[in-house]
Simulated scan of single mutants.
Amino acid sequence: MKTRNVNVFYSGVQAIMDVSLDLGAKQVLALIGPSGCGKSTFLRCLNRMNDTVLGCEVQGSLSLDGVDISALEPEELRARVGMVFQKPNPFPKSIYDNIAYGPKLHGLVESKTELDEVVEASLRKAGLWEEVCTRLHVPATGLSGGQQQRLCIARAISISPEVILMDEPCSALDPIATSVIEALIMELKENYTIGIVTHSMSQAKRVSDRTAYFHLGKLIEVNPTEEMFEQPQHHLTQGYLKGRFG
């Protein structure tokens, strides 16, 4: 995905200022910065989630595989650019139906057999199949927090997106569940482009290929992650990484 000169306003108040940033194919891009710096707002631009926010206006160029995302129907765009939120949000349905919902909605399967295969494949990719294969028809809300988040990732995968956006996917999880999600992200990048917002600098170091630092709605610096953390170029990035603010 490519973005150029993106500006975002909430009821006339500017939240994102002239941001140009790309998501490379089969890479993980981490967005870091203090609370309220605009990183989640920017992430939500990438699949037009901000369209649902009253009074929000997005300006600039955002494209997916060279096509302006404003030319795509929101449903088509969100099928190609999936999203996993901060708090696990399984549907109040069975584990099976959580995964089956998307493929059925988008007409991606023609038979129950195909649907069964998609459900199993998605749960396997999310590292959840062995834990739930004997209870696919129990409510998903009965899973642990870490399992629910992996279910939400499996649900995103089920419609074969090109990009997966994650908005602080581990903030509500314990360290063990977090490590499982991080290992999953490393596996998923072999097949998907991933953008992740995180408050954890150590998490950004562990899982991302490139890191972008936001400050007060501006993109201050973006570089390969190792370079960013070892030799940050901008004094604001240096201050944040050294814990002077944020």
Rank of each mutant, 00 (worst) to 15 (best):
A154F: 00
I164E: 05
L128K: 11
E187S: 14
G146S: 12
Q149H: 02
T193V: 14
A140K: 00
S144E: 03
G195N: 11
I194A: 06
G127L: 00
C133T: 15
P169D: 08
V197P: 03
E131C: 12
Q203W: 04
E190L: 13
L151Y: 01
K205M: 10
Y192H: 13
E190H: 15
Q149D: 02
R150D: 01
L184G: 02
L151S: 01
L136F: 05
P175D: 08
E131Q: 14
P169C: 08
D167Y: 07
L151T: 01
M186L: 15
I194C: 08
E187Y: 04
L143E: 00
A156S: 08
M201R: 13
V197Y: 09
S144P: 04
S179K: 13
I153R: 05
Q147A: 04
Q148T: 08
A121S: 15
V132K: 06
R124I: 14
I159G: 06
E120S: 13
P175W: 09
V163K: 09
Q149V: 05
P161H: 06
S144T: 04
S122C: 07
I176C: 05
Q203M: 11
T141G: 12
N191S: 14
D174K: 07
E187A: 14
K189L: 04
L123S: 01
I157C: 09
L123F: 09
L143T: 01
C152P: 01
K125S: 14
N191E: 15
Q148D: 04
A140F: 01
L151E: 00
Q147R: 07
I176F: 05
S144L: 07
S160H: 15
G142T: 14
V180G: 03
E168K: 12
T141L: 12
S208Y: 11
A204M: 05
L188M: 11
T134N: 15
L123M: 11
E130I: 06
A204T: 07
A126I: 03
S179A: 13
K205W: 06
I176A: 07
C152F: 03
E162G: 06
E182A: 08
V138P: 00
V180Q: 13
L188H: 04
A172M: 14
Q149G: 03
N191H: 15
R155F: 05
L173V: 08
H137V: 09
D167F: 09
L143S: 02
Q203D: 01
P139V: 13
M166R: 02
H199Y: 12
V197Q: 09
L143I: 09
E168P: 07
M201F: 13
N191C: 11
L188E: 03
R124K: 15
G142S: 10
W129E: 10
P175V: 10
M186E: 14
R135P: 04
H199E: 07
L173A: 08
P175M: 10
V207G: 05
A154H: 07
G127D: 07
L136C: 11
E190D: 15
C152K: 04
S200C: 11
M186C: 15
L165H: 10
I196A: 09
M166I: 06
E130C: 07
V207A: 10
E190Q: 14
I164C: 14
R135T: 12
R206K: 14
S200I: 04
I181V: 15
